[in-house]
Amino acid sequence: MPVWIDPDICNGCNNSRQPPCLRMCPGDLIVKDHSTNKAQLKYPEDCWDCLPCVKACPIEAIEFHLSYQFGSRGAKLQPRIHKGRDFITWDAEDIKGKKESFTIRTKVMKIALDETIEDGSEGLDFSI
């Protein structure tokens, strides 16, 4: 499981039909279950580990994991976008619990909670 959406944290971006995580995935792998109001990675085996979903989530509900075949769980790496300031910070923790942070310049781009796509996608059911 390369990325994991924590169902206890995910709030479905309120009423968003197409929340940021779902829109930003280049592989169309994330769906939102509108009955539970939670997003879910539907096709974990197709994940590229590229992280737009993680960066886009406004409440940091998505955890970045490594496929277990590559190494033990327990290591952590999470990005934090500094809104309004053009920086991103990555908080890292290795399997021995040693912590480190990396702050890097970027251009912070706004992402809306929802989007009405001109292709007529409003009012459709995107649930699983």
Partner: peptide
């Protein structure tokens, strides 16, 4: 080493997580 990690975080973050997970 820090520069390398930062460079990967800009492009291919899973390389850094791989190092963290494998010590």
């Amino acid at each position: 080493v820090t520069d390398l990690k930062k460079a990967y975080l800009d492009m291919y973050p899973s390389q850094v997580l791989y190092w963290l997970a494998n010590d």
